[in-house]
Write a protein that binds this DNA or RNA. Structure first.
Lengths: 204, 204
DNA sequence: TTGTCATGTGTCATTGAGTGACATAAGTTG
DNA sequence: CAACTTATGTCACTCAATGACACATGACAA
């Protein structure tokens, strides 16, 4: 298989997908999420409403597709951390890596990410679904932490550690600034606080 | 105003409300949440579908009304804690008080609470909305913690503390047993772990 | 009790999300 | 060019949710 080109069909699909995301985010931010209809989004990209649902299972999904991308980056960065690191070390490094990846990647993608975060921030129904994403990702995180701690996923201490990690992430991303540089700064401050509050070796 | 009786009209409304909740929970648990329609719930209580929406704003709300009740109990218990207590002391005592209130209250209510928790546990769309509730309640919690710590609600340390409290609550309630007695046990275990992980005075 | 007022409920119509079925158009491969 | 695969459009439908209006029922005063 060639990596240079991936067929006209596939490229068209990617293009439509991006166009749908951009149109949706812009409409959501300018008019409000609830008022905006699928028909409007589809019309803006000049596809049928039915086609929209072939790309995204729901109205929420198009808004949260970027958040999902971010979490997938985090998960893969986490899996790549060396096994010697404690859970806390691995998780904090993985979050840093995710932010770095976003800052060094496609600038358009970073702008979309900002838009998505601004949108979720001011739309309660989306905040709820975002939390659903976080909970999914939390399950994977639990497995990873359990592995590093050598416990099962039902271990209370492991679950507590995972919840603390989620807490750190939420403090950063939920009420944080849109700008990725400021976000990285806020992350460091939050991690510093966490380290001041937690006993050394708490995550072992 | 008399407290003994509260008028036939009001009593009828309470009765319909309870009946709708019970019918909904039973249908949701037996058939599944998504498959169950408003029409079925309304038919089971022998009211029109339109009336359902006069009691509950959405299909989700009827399922989560008990969770909301629980959180309101928590909030009022928290507000009643003496001002000298640290945030952690106040919050942990408030959670204990909430569980106690549920165990000592109406047994029917406790059974509904169990059903609701079981339902939310196995229905991802409801988990999402429950998280939305938790986030609402988190805003109030942030104000309370900020007051006790003498900071603004934007203080990072305060936000971290609140997130840790939420983490404790989620470890208990989310993957916990249905039974209220076992739940209280799990709470104590979780609190013990938290105290072992956190530095003394971390919440000051 | 009766008449008046307020309020809860049923019926009807409508919007919008989401899905299944089927025909057609477009890209892929030989 | 032909045969195949896959994306899209159209149509019809279910269900959640809301507004409007008429009607029934409980509350309350004379």
């Amino acid at each position: 298989m060639k990596m240079t080109t991936m067929g006209l069909r596939e490229r068209k699909k990617q293009k439509t997908r991006i166009a749908l995301i951009d149109a949706a985010l812009d409409l959501f931010l300018s008019q409000g999420y609830d008022i905006t209809t699928i028909d409007q989004i589809a019309a803006a990209v000049d596809v049928s409403p039915r086609t929209f649902f072939r790309y995204f299972a729901s109205k929420e999904e198009v808004a949260l597709s970027l958040c999902r991308d971010g979490q997938e980056i985090f998960q893969s960065e986490l899996a790549a951390r060396p096994a010697e690191e404690t859970p806390y070390q691995a998780v904090s490094q993985a979050i840093r890596a995710m932010l770095t990846a976003l800052r060094e990647g496609d600038p358009d993608e970073a702008r979309r990410f900002d838009k998505a975060r601004r949108l979720v921030e001011c739309t309660s129904s989306l905040s709820a679904v975002q939390m659903c994403l976080i909970m999914e990702s939390e399950r994977l995180l639990t497995e990873e932490v359990a592995r590093r701690r050598g416990t099962g996923v039902d271990d209370l201490h492991t679950q507590f550690a995972v919840s603390v990690f989620t807490a750190i992430g939420r403090v950063c991303f939920e009420h944080g600034p849109q700008d990725l540089a400021l976000l990285a700064e806020r992350l460091e401050q939050t991690l510093a606080i966490a380290e001041r509050c937690l006993r050394p070796g708490w995550d072992r």
